[in-house]
Design a protein around this nucleic acid. Structure first.
Lengths: 346, 346
DNA sequence: TTGAAAGCGCTAACAT
DNA sequence: ATGTTAGCGCTTTCAA
């Protein structure tokens, strides 16, 4: 069964292809009557113009791609949702590519997407959070950015030469620390996150700084690095609680690890927040799903995604666009944090 | 800056375009030396062949699309992940389209995707779960299915004429009911889900049937319909608990509502599972995030997605493919269910 | 208001 | 082993 084309429509409507094209895109006035007959034929055959052919000549595909590290962390679907919702109105359709944390997949997708002539690329997670990203991996991205607009979400590469949209994670971590300090906590720990990722490092650094400001310090044996998962949070928390002394409050790298940490603590009979306060990061839907509800730092995932698309749009249309946008996080105080327990014995 | 094409490469390498095409696709033997020089030029210009032009002539785009209702429910990202991971190896890139539950968006995407000549379409949620789907909405999908392979995940339309992959939700609900009955529960309620969606209806029906088998019945004032969210679960549970009598166990339409229900119960001072048993549905990551961990029914989200792509692949390649595949769910018993409380007074 | 014709960048016969 | 050429399905000058 031959595919039906604009030629078939033209022939049946007894006009030229250009006229059909004109009614399809209403790019020029067409007599109402001829327009009518053409529309009839189009509907009769349920003709769908081939977007590929159109893109080929117009050099516009109307597609944007997003590369993410992990769809099971609700943070990323929410960023995607923000992007898609913003882009849809503007006529874009979205490719979603999961790297599963493998840099080789990122590379693979990078080249596939370039071949597909996506008009913009949103990169989140993976190599752009590496404290020390191999030059080759950086190069791939900067090269892509020479061909199409690339926006990094919550990450960085090559010293800020690329467009970025991000939350000030350090400020968020400082907020969390300040909150705990205000509650009288002096023994504060940090749990979760790989130590070679900037997401983790920035937070740890900010917590240290904030504690220092108040004459406190972050004990090195109270910093436990690891994955970003619930399981990891649980394990790391157990390790922490196995130590000689235990802190009265814990700041976690994200909500997943915070929940894992909460579970570990509760399993040991600790009461939250009476015995131990816990702060998460992301304000994902999970944070209100647990009991007690999690005190956490907002990441504005939706807004990050939305802004990334807005930026791409500006770049495509040659509008002035600043290279980086910072979102200030906020602390959402819920039930997992409370006043520091009184010291009596220990 | 002119786009660099296969012609530019050919000219610089002093060969014809066909030879370049040959090394690009290694579709025919090319002398090693010429191949070398061509490769050199390709790398020199970082030439990326235009996938649109290729697709146009080959009539293959290497793309598959998935239409989902809601990215914030972790069930859907997991289905997507299953699809993408299976499809990536086979050379497919994925469009992800969120309908946000609006049928008009589904329609819009349907036609956009057809124009983009995706090679397969995975449809999940939305209209395919409607007990009584308007003919027009059905027609749009069946028409799409005439052009490309369409697979419905956990839904149905037009009496099984379309390809389907789904979990036997009724069997899952029966499993849940049986489990509660085995624990001695006689007063069982159902919470969550819109009453005009098949996901909800099938479950309610199955629970009723199972209870009947055991000489029990599902009181109509113990069935509370609503959205599928945590908030809805909470509200509906509150409504349920405001009733004259309360059940000893509740089956929820999904994990979200189950968690909402759990929260409502706990807020009222009920102990789970001592006072009240709760069963969820989906076995999403949430189910192990909460305390107590949720007893739930597996949906095999990843596998559903994977199978959908496998099916599309079979259809494209003309291999025999059965029209529908059913996955049998399993009950995962965790901490939110326990023996029915002893009646003494009330 | 409409038509003819030249491409967009590539692949695939068909030649050589 | 390599080159020539005719499209794929559309948009867009340029003419009429």
């Amino acid at each position: 069964m031959k595919n039906i084309t604009i030629y078939d429509i033209a022939k049946e409507a007894e006009v030229s292809v250009s006229t059909v094209s004109r009614v399809l895109n209403n790019t020029a006035p067409v007599k109402a009557s001829t327009k009518d007959t053409i529309m009839k034929v189009i509907e009769k055959y349920k003709f769908q113009p081939n977007a590929l052919a159109r893109s080929l000549i117009k050099k516009e595909t109307g597609t944007i791609a997003m590369i993410v590290p992990d769809m099971t962390n609700p943070f990323f679907p929410e960023v995607f949702w923000g992007s898609e919702n913003e882009g849809r109105e503007k006529g874009y359709t979205f490719f979603l590519c999961n790297s599963a944390g493998e840099y080789s997949r990122e590379s693979e997708y990078l080249s596939i997407l370039l071949e597909r002539r996506v008009e913009g690329l949103i990169f989140i997670g993976g190599r752009i959070n590496l404290a020390d990203c191999p030059p080759e991996l950086i190069r791939e991205v900067t090269e892509a950015a020479e061909a199409i607009p690339v926006v990094l979400v919550n990450g960085n590469l090559s010293k800020g030469s690329l467009h970025r949209v991000y939350t000030d994670e350090a400020a968020g971590a400082a907020l969390a620390a300040q909150h705990l300090i205000d509650l009288g906590h002096k023994e504060i720990a940090f749990v979760g996150g790989l130590d070679y990722m900037t997401t983790t490092m920035q937070k740890v650094k900010a917590v240290k700084k904030k504690l220092k400001e108040h004459g406190l310090s972050l004990r090195s044996d109270w910093v436990h690095y690891g994955e970003f998962s619930i399981t990891a949070g649980r394990e790391l928390m157990n390790r922490l609680l196995n130590g000689e002394q235990r802190p009265t409050a814990v700041i976690c790298v994200n909500d997943f690890t915070a929940i894992g940490a909460m579970k570990a603590a509760i399993e040991r009979g600790l009461k939250i927040p009476e015995d131990l306060s816990i702060v998460g990061f992301d304000d994902s839907p999970l944070s209100t799903a647990v009991i007690p509800e999690l005190t956490t730092v907002t990441q504005n995932a939706y807004e990050l995604g939305r802004l990334a698309v807005e930026r791409i749009y500006q770049i495509i249309h040659g509008k002035p666009a600043k290279r980086s946008t910072v979102l200030q996080p906020e602390l959402v105080i819920r039930q997992s944090t409370g006043r520091a327990p009184q010291k009596n014995g220990d």
